[in-house]
């Protein structure tokens, strides 16, 4: 078996005195889509922050393609092919669409290529190239964010709550793009509250609560236990 693209070993992290990750073990095989599910406050976003270098762990290791990367800075990771689309507004609202795309070229792809990729996938962005990103609809903003995932040619893509605050129809559209990216061979770790949507595109799934991975398995197995985990065991 080849070396996994991402391997997280016994990861602990804390906000000040609040321990949020309590020993997380997670593996993303090369070329696979892994869905990371779980209720709010489970530590999913924190895990992505640590993997992407935005936050430092208190202990534990992270390996990217077998290389130990703990302590690397997010901009360095971004330049070597780790693309992170964080939750919420992951575009610059006071820059135009085109300016947002220009900044995406920091990941190492020429600006022209970024424009080409973005506009061919999302013609709507082309129409709004000179509009401020903050004035786009939520779905269009998320398309813009996804344009970075598409154009930066990542080795590993981290997607955090792609669907947050979006209408289900748009979420479906965005996940079509995720499937396209996955088909091109990119490994993806996707954090999602819309468990079912994420499970449809995932090869494997992991469930997180209380700062630990409590279950892993095929999407179908996980699907069955999700309602209990999120809406409460009393159901």
């Amino acid at each position: 078996m080849s070396v996994p693209i991402l391997e997280v070993v016994d990861l602990h992290a804390a906000y000040g005195r609040i321990e949020v990750l309590r020993g997380v073990d997670l593996t993303v095989p090369r070329g696979a889509v892994v869905a990371l599910l779980g209720p709010n406050g489970a530590g999913k976003s924190t895990l992505l922050k640590v993997i992407s270098g935005q936050m430092e762990q208190t202990s534990g290791d992270i390996h990217l393609s077998g290389v130990h990367v703990s302590g690397a800075k997010p901009d360095d990771l971004a330049r070597v092919g780790l693309t992170t689309v964080p939750e919420g507004r992951s575009v610059f609202p006071n820059l135009t669409v085109e300016e947002n795309l220009l900044l995406m070229s920091y990941a190492g792809v020429s600006a022209d290529k970024v424009y080409d990729t973005a506009y061919s996938y999302f013609p709507r962005l082309y129409e709004r190239a000179f509009q401020l990103a903050g004035t786009l609809s939520g779905g269009e903003q998320q398309m813009l964010a996804m344009a970075r995932a598409l154009s930066s040619d990542p080795a590993l893509l981290l997607l955090d709550e792609l669907s947050m605050g979006l209408a289900p129809l748009i979420v479906d559209e965005l996940y079509d793009t995720v499937v396209q990216i996955a088909d091109s061979g990119v490994s993806i770790l996707v954090v999602e509250q819309f468990a079912r949507t994420a499970l449809e595109v995932a090869d494997y799934a992991a469930v997180m609560t209380g700062g630990r991975i409590v279950a892993t398995g095929e999407p179908d197995e996980i699907n069955e236990i999700m309602a209990d985990v999120i809406l409460g065991g009393a159901a």
Partner: peptide, 15 residues
């Protein structure tokens, strides 16, 4: 609320 499909959809993305 627990059995409400709208809520389940909001939380789980039921399609």
């Amino acid at each position: 609320i627990r059995t409400n499909p709208v809520v389940q959809k909001a939380y789980l993305g039921y399609s």
